[in-house]
């Protein structure tokens, strides 16, 4: 089934809770994405289910533990596991985060922020290079959801991502919910962020729900992936794909999982927007 790249369609994060529903009939989902680390056991049900997904849909492997944003050396054993998984399933896309998750041998199980400086840029570039060389494939690197920022940062995040891509040849995964969440958390404009984002490098888009609270420092948005994508995020998505044309677009839902039809309805909503963007793009090209 591997066709080289994800289709320009809407996909869903695959959750084992949805397997029965998904496998019961052909689903109108363009692709599925899984978190790589959940499939790093040797065998059993997780692999039998992923094999089914692989055989029937395009697949995206999304890592959360490679520690790209750390200034410590990459975990070679983990990179080898990721390589094995890529070899076993031949996913159309493989992605990771501009974040760190381990330090001093301890794994934090969270995507943690880094300052954006010339020094950290060198670390990230070296890590993406090493990962791409090890995996023998191009990675997409995702913009993080941030709750804090480092005062020592000297490079805007969009420039930092573009520099990583320029130096390593990697692509970018644009998480529009993360853009919204980070902008809100820093009293900044998500649209301004997107205006400066190197959209030509985007290989996939992520969309998810978040929740908003009031906190000491003003609005606090938490990237909880436990609710529908809000309208403001979808509006940003529309503006992005109006410029780029359709892109593979994933709906992520990790907490408070709904039944599969609810998630599928979200995917369909995104698919309709992709179709509209495709139509207006075609019109623009014809004009």
């Amino acid at each position: 089934m591997p066709s080289g790249q994800l289709p320009l369609r809407a996909g869903a994060g695959f959750k084992p809770e949805h397997f029965a529903a998904i496998s019961a009939a052909r689903q109108p989902a363009g692709f599925f994405e899984v978190h790589a680390e959940n499939y790093m056991g040797a065998g059993g049900a997780p692999h039998s289910q992923l094999k089914f997904i692989r055989e029937n849909y395009p697949l995206s492997l999304h890592g959360v533990g490679l520690n790209i944003g750390s200034c410590e050396p990459l975990d070679r054993a983990h990179l080898a596991r990721l390589k094995d998984l890529c070899g076993r399933y031949q996913p159309e896309s493989c992605s990771e985060h501009l974040a760190w998750s381990s330090s001093g041998g301890i794994y934090f199980n969270d995507l943690l922020p880094l300052p954006y400086t010339e020094a950290t840029l060198r670390c990230v570039v070296a890590h993406v290079d090493e990962a791409q060389n090890g995996l023998r494939r191009r990675l997409l690197i995702e913009n993080p959801a941030a709750y804090l920022r480092f005062e020592e940062s000297t490079i805007p995040e969009t420039e930092f991502l573009e520099a990583v891509a320029r130096a390593t040849g990697c692509g970018l995964l644009l998480d529009i919910n993360n853009v919204f969440v980070s902008a809100r958390n820093h009293a900044a404009s998500p649209q301004a962020y997107l205006d400066s984002f190197p959209l030509h490098l985007v290989g996939e888009i992520h969309l998810a729900g978040h929740f908003a609270a009031e906190a000491d420092g003003g609005a606090l948005c938490v990237d909880a992936h436990g609710s529908p994508v809000i309208e403001a995020v979808l509006a940003l998505f529309d503006r992005v794909i109006a410029r780029t044309g359709p892109l593979p677009a994933l709906v992520e839902w990790d907490n408070d999982l709904p039944q599969w039809p609810v998630l599928l309805a979200e995917v369909n909503k995104v698919q309709e927007r992709l179709c509209r963007a495709a139509a207006s793009h075609k019109d623009a090209a014809a004009a």
């Binding site: 978190h35 680390e37 499939y39 985060h97 969270d110 990237d223 992936h225």
Partner: peptide, 9 residues
């Protein structure tokens, strides 16, 4: 699975 990329609230 116990690995994901969501915040826990």
């Amino acid at each position: 699975g116990q690995n994901d990329c969501a915040s826990k609230g």
